[in-house]
Design a protein around this nucleic acid. Structure first.
Lengths: 322, 322
DNA sequence: TTCGGTAGTTGAAGCGCTTCGACAAGGACC
DNA sequence: GGTCCTTGTCGAAGCGCTTCAACTACCGAA
């Protein structure tokens, strides 16, 4: 019984008689044999590990990140890969390190900015990568994200259909806009485009993720634009505070004020009243990212941008304009 | 110039003349040379990767987990190690896989239950590990956690010192108790012990992490125990809802009701009013875990339990009993 | 019957490092 | 001047796999 035979049984890369295969598998089982990962990686030039670069920056909503990360790990395991966790604060050098040392076979990069310094590097690296988020120039890249432009449009359309003609977008913390994060910019663009198309007034404002900030931002907003009857909210952690603030201000949802959220479904459903929302499908995006990466690994799949379609669910937080 | 010489320059394991060293370093710089991680691991029997097992279970508060994870990754990088992310749903087999294939050198396991099925396995594995959390039998293990018993005691003492004699512990979701998670059990024990010692009434109840659950739980609590004037809260995500519920019920904080939280400092400070709290030092625990692990890696450090001391900070949410 | 082809198996080469033992050169000591 | 030790460098072995080329055995077609 040659070592190579065992290798072929385990990898299935050559035909093996069923007798031999059974014998090998039995021995593997009995001895509890596990191939050494480093030796395997050295010989095959594949580590079966992918890197996941997670942002740790101001304004990012942690539970959503974790949802992405979980989806990535779970899907990677389905394809017999493991996940190496990198934090974005290592920046370019972290990516260079893990790819040039062949620690990983491929990269998943989250929280991509419009003009991300890592993008040129990703183009050069001799290793497939998938971005979660869309930079300004996607030439030669593989990117996946929710279609935030369409998401915002759908929110506006839904409110416009209900007869609202002055609505607001309560956005992400200003830090997120300042670093030109793609998803935030695309949401604003979609919001403005749809408002214009529908001939209604659309006011957008950033909002920090604290109760006081919501209190102040919403207070200012309603003072300056008393005609607002609909709000689109993109910043998940302020959903609770916003509902609270509206209650304090005596505005009932949805009677006086309609609310649309762009957030995970379970978050929307957990509120009182349940929120009409466009789903942020973090699970599917993470899963899709890994599946694409695996495809690129063993078939030189070309680059391309995948926008997950936005899907709106009307619930109890929106109604016809007062 | 022998390959071995380069290796010795890079690792510093033998003395090298400064002339040679400079020449090698210059060449490394110019060529952008990076040692191949797999080859290095195969030859040296060290992958320089540690596994981090993260729970994805009901009732766990995600931002805190992320804080642990971040601290672990950052600290690991300080010691020139990387982090492989495992989810707890792979259970024992995940641990066996990564350790037996020598994918990693060591393990950090989070969210340990009192009778965790992974504990016996960890004792057997030929590889150091550190648990974040304390199981029932710590024989032969290295564990680190906040001293939740003392944390609860300090909360009770603080309230008792202020003259309260009927207080409640608003705990974690019941799922966390049911699976006998150590930190929750130790908090309850400390709460009860201190209440008894101080001769005051201590009522403890689990609480799910939704607004309605808080509304109902607190409603029931105050109906059955109308004399309660102080609450200790261990469940971070319900801090906001709790403040809201008390407001609705017309109980002012701290005039009518004193509040103590066991949570991260920044969370306590972000509330209105700012909460008196015992800090949950996730950063330090994560950091300490990795430092201990590194020490075990290259010096056969013995096992042992490290309880991080609890530290109480009085803020605006506690005052003398009404 | 002979020949080409296919399926099954094998030994050997080699992946890119680390580490061990050997060895040369030089300094200290008697 | 010879011996011993230290310091710096090197070649070779080997880590545990994968993969290639080669070989055997056997089958069907000519």
């Amino acid at each position: 019984m040659a070592a190579s035979t065992v290798s072929y049984v385990l990898s299935g890369k050559r035909s093996i008689s069923s007798a031999t295969r059974d014998r090998v598998q039995e021995a593997v089982r009995v001895l509890g044999y596990r191939p050494n990962a480093s030796a395997r990686a050295l010989a095959s030039n594949r580590s079966n590990v992918i890197a996941l670069v997670i942002p740790l920056r101001a304004g990012m909503h942690v539970p959503v990140l974790m949802q992405f990360a979980t989806a990535v790990v779970t899907t990677a395991r389905r394809f017999d890969h493991d996940v190496l966790l990198l934090t974005a604060d290592e920046g370019r050098s972290g990516l260079e390190r893990v790819s040039q040392s062949a620690l990983v076979d491929a990269l998943v990069v989250m929280d991509v900015e419009l003009h991300d310094e890592r993008v040129p590097l990703l183009r050069e690296l001799p290793m497939p990568s998938v971005l979660i988020g869309i930079p300004a120039d996607t030439e030669g890249l593989t990117c996946i994200d929710l279609d935030f432009f369409a998401a915002a449009e759908q929110c506006v359309d839904h409110l416009a259909d209900l007869g609202h003609h002055e609505i607001a977008l309560l956005g992400t913390p200003s830090a997120v806009y300042e670093r030109q994060t793609g998803f935030a910019a695309r949401t604003v663009a979609g919001f403005q485009a749809a408002a214009e198309r529908r001939g209604i007034a659309g006011i957008e404002t950033p909002c920090e993720s604290t109760f006081e900030a919501v209190l102040e931002t919403v207070g200012d907003l309603l003072r300056e634009h008393p005609g607002i009857t609909g709000v689109v909210i993109q910043n998940e952690p302020i959903i609770g505070p916003l509902l609270d603030v509206l209650r304090r201000l005596g505005r009932r949802v949805p009677e006086d004020m309609s609310l649309m959220a762009i957030c995970a479904d379970d978050v929307a459903v957990r509120q009182v009243p349940q929120l009409s929302s466009v789903t942020l499908p973090a699970d599917e995006i993470g899963q899709q990212a890994v599946e694409t990466l695996i495809a690129k690994l063993d078939s030189d799949l070309g680059p391309g941008v995948t926008l997950m379609p936005a899907q709106l669910t009307a619930r109890a937080s929106t109604s016809t304009a007062p």
